[in-house]
Design a protein around this nucleic acid. Structure first.
Length: 155
DNA sequence: GCCAACGTTGGC
DNA sequence: GCCAACGTTGGC
């Protein structure tokens, strides 16, 4: 089973916001990058797990784990002229942008910080740690996933 | 707030 | 198809 990492700026939408959402579920709208969209469309399947990563905050890091509960479908915010994510190139009969639904699965008591990840051996090649990486939806190798989750054993 | 790195746009 | 200019991301 593939694993994923989803970035969000907590000032926009945080893991706490997700926990406070109905059914601890939200639609992951606003993705406006083709590579990220393609990962959602071609790779993500119901039941897959993803890290929920907080970017542009202090400290940046992984706040928890979410489960993909609905596979890719059209992102209506692209059709909405009043939305920050509006994209007139995306039409309802030919949607350019997609989203998935995710549900909170586990919150880490202490977020796994980016610093902690950089210090963790065995994460060579991880997309998040690549210099200049800004992909907001990215796959995580099972080997990397296991090493990261092992930092926060569940009791 | 700075700025390097990146993806996208558009002129040619 | 090239590539400079631009806007954005995101760590620091």
């Amino acid at each position: 089973m593939p694993f994923w990492l989803l970035k969000s700026e907590p000032s926009s939408f945080s893991f706490a916001d997700l926990l406070a959402s109905p059914k601890k579920t939200t639609c992951w709208d606003g993705v406006r990058n083709y590579q990220a969209r393609n990962f959602m469309r071609d790779g993500m399947r119901k039941g897959d797990l993803a890290f929920f990563y907080h970017s542009s905050t202090e400290p940046p890091g992984i706040a928890g784990i979410v489960e993909i509960v609905r596979e890719a479908y059209p992102d209506p915010s692209a059709f909405d002229p009043t939305s920050d994510y509006h994209d007139p190139r995306s039409k309802p009969d030919d949607p350019a942008w997609l989203m998935v639904d995710v549900r909170a699965k586990r919150a880490f008591d202490e977020p796994i910080t980016l610093t902690e990840l950089r210090e963790l051996p065995g994460l060579d090649g991880m997309e998040l740690l690549r210099r200049g990486s800004r992909l907001s939806v990215q796959p995580v190798l099972a080997e990397h996933w296991d090493r990261i989750v092992a930092l926060r054993p569940s009791r």
